[in-house]
Design a protein around this nucleic acid. Structure first.
Length: 445
RNA sequence: GGCGCGAUGGCGGAGUGGUGACGCAACGGAUUGCAAAUCCGUGUACACGAGUUCGAUUCUCGUUCGCGCCUCCA
């Protein structure tokens, strides 16, 4: 049995991973709010924790891991966007959720076991709020249901923020209905024309944190093994999930918290206002999904990544090399130990990739293929990888005709004609390679 | 202000108390009509200053610089 070690945010240290139930290891990852295309930063946790999912399946068996990744389809930004675009909330969220799932699959990630949606868990949310009110952890004020932070002894255990610090550092105006500046919203009132659900406290909608607590409890149980997401979620999102869940059921909420580092562009956080915003959807038009995914895995997940197109191109070249080497080679039936060991050490993907590079030679191509495919790479045929859909403006058969003409010219030592044909193909985006077994072509980079 | 993270060669990026991971780029060579692809070869990197040590890029302290979070952003 492989020993997995995980850096646990709760303990701020690397710990051996011991599942609650090896026959059902449970992991939850915070997914996107669906109101637009997701950006490449949103894809980082998806790519990273997909590797975790694969590793857990490898170690505990593919039928013994449950991985849930939620879709947040209730949020004020959704309402604003739907109104701006004049579309219904439902059509907006469903379209975006579908697009998200399609794009993530193109990155070569596995489909999670479950993809629960907030809108499907209103009864559970109402039930949790009732429990929290009964137990004195929440109160009703001015149409809101608020979580009362002071009612929880060890609030702040994950982020290491004390309630006092929060109040001292508060940057926003304290809403008048709050008993305490640190209190947060479980439920807020909706006007007639806003999205909302009926509840014992009137028509309203849930606060952001409540859905994750409820979906985890319903689908995975009161205590789960791994909860993951971006570093920015540590506070307030995950801290408040802990508060809601542990105060409502009393059990430990999560044993291992994993948080991926930020992805920046030119050293700055990606944001629309800075104009450095790259959506996965757009990137997939220009770049291979596998190259995109590898770009997200070349750095350790807890390190920041300064994203660039150059990185994608570098990873494309690495994959080109791996594809050439493994052409026509069957993948070994076992995954290289070095790859598994690297991943088991707190998901050290750079080391796993280096291990694959070390296997990138003719006599270990089968191992390379097995290891790469374990990560969801090298899954295409070489034809599809190098040729893909024929480049714009020229068909594969036209290319073959020109190659045949060029072979004739070369046989006649008519190199000016030969080069003319090659240049013509090059300007059409086709690169030629004269190998020992003849001339082949591929799409130029 | 509070909490936390980081600084490795031209670039990306692991790791380690004592032989320069790995990849990209660059350069030289082989191969090629020329290329491409491939193969062989080439590199005195660990922000700065102290300390601990036989020995520090790795441990400790300090400095500088950069970044994130502090109520709804992965």
């Amino acid at each position: 049995m492989v020993d997995i070690h995980i850096y646990n945010t709760k303990a701020r240290t690397k710990q051996p991973f011991e599942p609650i139930d090896p026959s059902n290891v449970r992991m939850y990852v915070c997914g996107p709010t669906v109101y637009d295309h997701v950006h490449i930063g949103n894809a980082r946790p998806v790519a990273v924790f997909d590797v975790m999912f694969r590793l857990l399946r490898h170690v505990y068996g593919s039928d013994h891991v449950t991985y849930a990744r939620n879709i947040t389809d209730i949020e004020d930004k959704i309402m604003e966007r739907a109104e701006r675009d004049g579309v219904s909330i439902k059509s907006l969220t469903e379209r975006c959720a579908r697009q998200y799932q399609t794009d993530m699959l193109k990155l070569g990630t596995l489909e999670p076991s479950l993809q629960p949606k907030a809108t499907e868990h209103l009864p559970e949310m109402i039930k949790m709020m009732k429990t929290l009110i009964e137990k004195g952890h929440a109160y009703v004020a001015d149409g809101h249901v608020m979580f009362h932070v002071a009612s929880m002894e060890n609030y702040g255990q994950l982020s290491r923020h004390s309630r006092d610090e929060l109040i001292a550092g508060a940057r926003v105006e304290v809403a008048p209905y709050k008993k305490d500046a640190a209190d947060f919203v479980l439920w807020k009132p909706s006007s007639e024309d806003q999205m909302g659900w009926s509840s014992p406290w009137g028509k309203g909608r849930p606060g952001w944190h409540l859905e994750c607590s409820c979906m985890i409890e319903k689908h995975l149980g009161e205590t789960i093994d791994i909860h993951a997401g971006g570093q920015d979620l540590i506070f307030p999102h995950h801290e408040n999930e802990i508060a809601q869940s542990e105060c409502s059921h009393g059990a430990t909420f999560v044993n291992y918290w994993m948080h991926n580092g930020y992805l920046t562009v030119d050293g700055e956080k990606m944001s629309k206002s800075l104009g450095n915003f790259h959506t996965v959807h757009d990137l997939l038009k220009e770049h291979e999904g596998e190259a995109l995914k590898l770009s997200l895995l070349v750095a350790h997940y807890r390190q920041p990544i300064d994203f660039s197109i150059k990185t994608i191109q570098e990873q494309k070249r690495r994959l080109d090399r791996w594809y050439r080497l493994t052409d026509g080679v069957d993948a070994d039936t076992t995954i290289p130990v070095a790859v598994i060991e690297a991943l088991a050490d707190d998901l050290n993907t750079p080391r796993a990739i280096a291990a694959l590079d070390a296997l990138a030679s003719d006599d270990t191509a089968g191992a390379l293929k097995a290891g790469a495919q374990f990560l969801g790479l090298l899954l295409k045929s070489n034809d599809s990888w190098f040729k893909g859909d024929a480049p714009d403006g020229i068909t594969a058969s036209e290319i073959e005709v020109l190659i045949a003409d060029r072979i004739k010219a070369r046989a006649n030592k008519d190199f000016s004609e030969s080069d003319r044909i090659r240049n013509r193909l090059e300007s059409a985006g086709v690169a030629l390679e004269d190998g020992a077994s003849g001339t082949t072509w591929r799409k130029a980079d």
